[in-house]
Amino acid sequence: MTIKLKQILRWVILGATLVFVGKALQDNWLEVTAIRIDEAGWSILAIATGITLLAHTWAGWIWTWILQELKQPVPATKFIQVYLKTNIAKYLPGNVWHHYGRIVAAKNANISAGAATLSVLLEPLLMAAAALIFVVLFGNQFAANNNTFIQQLFKIFSLIIILGAIHPRFLNPVINLLHKLKVKKSDNKSTPNVGIRRYPLRPLLGEMAFLGLRGLGFILTLFAIMPLNFGQVPLLLGAFSFSWLLGFIVPGAPGGLGVFEATAIALLQHRFPSGAIISAIALYRLISIIAEVAGAVLASLDER
């Protein structure tokens, strides 16, 4: 029954997002078809693609940092290749196959099963924490009065909660509990003590840099379509971070497909020309897929 409910929920979410995006596209079709990209714009889109590819490569390097935190030093180049080659699998139904591929590759490199599994659990957790930090820092751009004392106090309090939640004192008990539950379901009676030794500051900063690069790619995509000023960057970065986070955590959206687009349109269509926003979001999804495919191909070629 639970599995059926999950499947129904995924289809409902996917259907709702597709209906919303389709309705927005229908209402603004004339504006979308009127968009023209000049030669400079195509050059900017090429740069956005390169930055997005750099972001995924950087994320693979951060994965090696996480493994180092777990006392599992690994060759960076090899594991970045693994990360890039498995990244495209996140678009498969279930949204777990990229994690599975990384666990298998890590175990084949003589990394313990516990550390391999924990590394692919910590990575999205730190990504989500980085996205929440960006949302807290720039999310008040959507408020009419974004500099009140109450808002600043709430911002500080939220940051303290986010940063405190990934402290080993709170993370490790959860990790050990999940480990015990996993052991009970298997024939292995050993319960290795798997956890992080210290606050994952370097991986967290790395994930913030990753999200910053992804956000820069999105901003450049919009810039290729319409002029922007520097004062609009915090608003765009906040909207991108929130949209990316929802696409990241909502079930039934492999790679955030549909959820990211619907959220970004809802947040930005009343602050920028709707046609430009819809076109930029569609182009950015295409850029993301091209960058991920290019990363997988280049990693395979480099490995050979």
Score class of each variant (00 low, 15 high):
residue 256 G to C: 07
residue 213 L to T: 08
residue 189 K to F: 00
residue 237 L to F: 13
residue 86 T to K: 00
residue 69 E to K: 11
residue 270 H to I: 14
residue 233 V to S: 01
residue 207 E to D: 10
residue 247 G to Q: 05
residue 273 P to G: 13
residue 136 V to C: 12
residue 208 M to G: 04
residue 45 L to Q: 03
residue 27 D to G: 12
residue 182 K to H: 13
residue 281 I to H: 01
residue 84 L to V: 12
residue 206 G to K: 01
residue 187 D to F: 06
residue 157 F to K: 08
residue 276 A to Q: 06
residue 67 L to Q: 08
residue 304 R to Q: 12
residue 86 T to R: 02
residue 302 D to K: 06
residue 163 L to G: 09
residue 49 T to L: 11
residue 4 K to P: 02
residue 146 N to D: 06
residue 134 F to T: 06
residue 88 I to K: 07
residue 57 T to P: 00
residue 140 N to I: 08
residue 102 R to D: 01
residue 204 L to C: 04
residue 278 I to R: 05
residue 20 F to K: 02
residue 113 A to L: 15
residue 158 S to A: 14
residue 299 A to C: 10
residue 215 G to N: 11
residue 234 P to C: 03
residue 181 L to Y: 07
residue 41 G to F: 05
residue 58 W to A: 10
residue 73 P to K: 10
residue 143 A to T: 11
residue 252 G to Y: 02
residue 88 I to E: 10
residue 303 E to R: 13
residue 149 F to D: 09
residue 119 S to L: 11
residue 217 G to S: 14
residue 163 L to F: 09
residue 229 N to F: 07
residue 75 P to Y: 12
residue 109 A to Y: 08
residue 107 K to P: 00
residue 154 F to I: 04
residue 240 F to E: 00
residue 233 V to I: 13
residue 30 L to D: 10
residue 148 T to Q: 13
residue 234 P to G: 03
residue 102 R to C: 00
residue 183 V to M: 10
residue 77 T to N: 12
residue 301 L to W: 14
residue 75 P to L: 15
residue 8 I to L: 07
residue 284 Y to H: 14
residue 251 P to R: 02
residue 184 K to P: 00
residue 249 I to G: 06
residue 141 Q to D: 11
residue 53 L to Q: 01
residue 139 G to C: 08
residue 214 R to Y: 03
residue 208 M to K: 04
residue 115 A to N: 04
residue 179 H to D: 09
residue 267 L to E: 05
residue 42 W to Y: 09
residue 176 N to Y: 12
residue 91 Y to T: 02
residue 293 V to W: 08
residue 184 K to G: 01
residue 276 A to R: 05
residue 273 P to C: 15
residue 149 F to Q: 08
residue 136 V to I: 15
residue 47 I to Q: 05
residue 229 N to L: 04
residue 55 A to E: 03
residue 146 N to H: 10
residue 279 S to H: 02
residue 201 L to I: 09
residue 290 I to R: 01
residue 148 T to P: 03
residue 140 N to C: 07
residue 63 W to F: 01
residue 212 G to L: 09
residue 272 F to V: 09
residue 208 M to E: 04
residue 3 I to N: 14
residue 127 M to W: 11
residue 119 S to N: 15
residue 148 T to I: 14
residue 259 V to N: 05
residue 236 L to G: 00
residue 122 L to P: 09
residue 29 W to R: 12
residue 261 E to F: 00
residue 161 I to S: 11
residue 157 F to V: 06
residue 45 L to M: 08
residue 66 I to M: 10
residue 199 Y to P: 04
residue 138 F to S: 07
residue 236 L to I: 02
residue 121 L to S: 15
residue 212 G to N: 08
residue 123 E to V: 08
residue 74 V to E: 09
residue 168 P to R: 05
residue 187 D to H: 03
residue 117 T to R: 11
residue 121 L to M: 15
residue 128 A to T: 15
residue 86 T to H: 05
residue 279 S to R: 08
residue 156 I to P: 01
residue 287 I to R: 01
residue 12 V to R: 10
residue 70 L to E: 03
residue 237 L to T: 00
residue 302 D to E: 14
residue 119 S to W: 15
residue 26 Q to P: 09
residue 11 W to V: 06
residue 128 A to H: 15
residue 74 V to H: 14
residue 34 A to C: 08
residue 93 P to R: 04
residue 22 G to S: 10
residue 107 K to C: 02
residue 254 P to F: 10
residue 23 K to C: 01
residue 124 P to D: 12
residue 267 L to R: 04
residue 250 V to Q: 09
residue 31 E to S: 11
residue 5 L to M: 03
residue 195 G to W: 00
residue 96 V to W: 06
residue 36 R to F: 04
residue 253 A to V: 05
residue 93 P to H: 15
residue 137 L to Y: 06
